[in-house]
Simulated assay, not measured.
Amino acid sequence: MIHIENLTRKYGDFTAVDGVSFEIASGEIVGLLGHNGAGKTTIMKMMTGYLEASAGWVRIGGLDIAAERQAAQGKIGYLPENCPVYPEMTILGYLDYCAALHGVPERERPSLIREAVERTALAEKATELISTLSRGWRQRVGVAQAILHKPEILILDEPTNGLDPTQILQMRGLIAELAKTATVIISTHILQEVQAVCGRVIIIKNGKVALDSRLDELRRSSGRLIVNCKAEPSKAMQQLGSLPLTAKAEQTGPERFELELKPGADSRKAAAAAAQAVCVAGWPLYGLHFETRTLETVFAEISR
């Protein structure tokens, strides 16, 4: 559905995006992560055709965004970072205007607007001026205009910005529902949002792709066995480090030891051997588990 190759954007001598390449299949929910200034928003602007690339190309549903911009943009629903809306318009008036810009036939607009209003829970505010709305309500208006024309691709830049906890949960549910019929890309610096709704994460650092992985793969065990026991450190490291399936043992905290297993070692047998060694030595065993990587730990590693 989306194919990006060697995408680059320069501002004079400064390279904001540097040779980014990735593909996103139909129906995926992908989180685009990175610190502020990493290049996420610039990538999104080039993906949607709002900003020209200095090099590389973007294809949306097989269409080159540079050569076939209008047709490609017709497949996209886009919520920009700062949610630009016209404050002097009512919500319904604004959505009708957006429908016209998308080329939606006039006879089809009422039903599409009604559906967008219902899905974003805007009904109680529908006739009010946008200027009277809070930041959270304006954000909902931005999402409503993005989904109004039922796009094949939905690109959301900080979609939960300004929403309260209840609205955030509603937004997560809406994104999951939208993914049934559209490809969704979410740009954010909030890790919890990515973990809650995305199946894949792309981390951008200094304008480059630092990581592209499925979340379930990130959550797999790191292969390090954590042993919590009360023992004299040198004796514990010697005893645990000499186990047949252990490559190395080190102390990583008070009464906490990490065992790195040998390649191909059976994790269950290694855990059983470690537990037996601790019990035979007469040390109190407080805990035994395998370390798992989380999005937070991976992001911290990449950000160093």
Rank of each mutant, 00 (worst) to 15 (best):
D212F: 10
G207T: 13
D157I: 00
S134C: 05
Q238F: 13
K208W: 07
L240T: 05
D157C: 00
S187T: 07
C198G: 03
P151L: 01
D216T: 14
I175V: 15
R140I: 03
H149K: 04
G162Q: 03
Q139I: 04
K230D: 14
I203P: 02
I168C: 12
L174C: 03
E177Q: 14
G207R: 12
L178G: 06
T183D: 09
L156R: 00
D212S: 11
L129D: 08
L133T: 07
I153M: 09
R135G: 06
K230E: 14
G199A: 05
G136W: 02
T183H: 11
K235A: 15
E193S: 12
T188W: 02
S187D: 03
T166G: 07
E152Q: 12
Q195S: 15
R214T: 13
G136E: 04
G136P: 05
E128Q: 14
D216P: 08
H189L: 11
R214M: 09
E158W: 03
N228H: 15
V197T: 11
A210F: 08
I147A: 01
T160F: 00
A210Y: 14
R224F: 12
D164V: 06
E217G: 06
I168D: 03
G162I: 05
I226H: 13
I153T: 12
L133E: 00
D157E: 04
I186C: 09
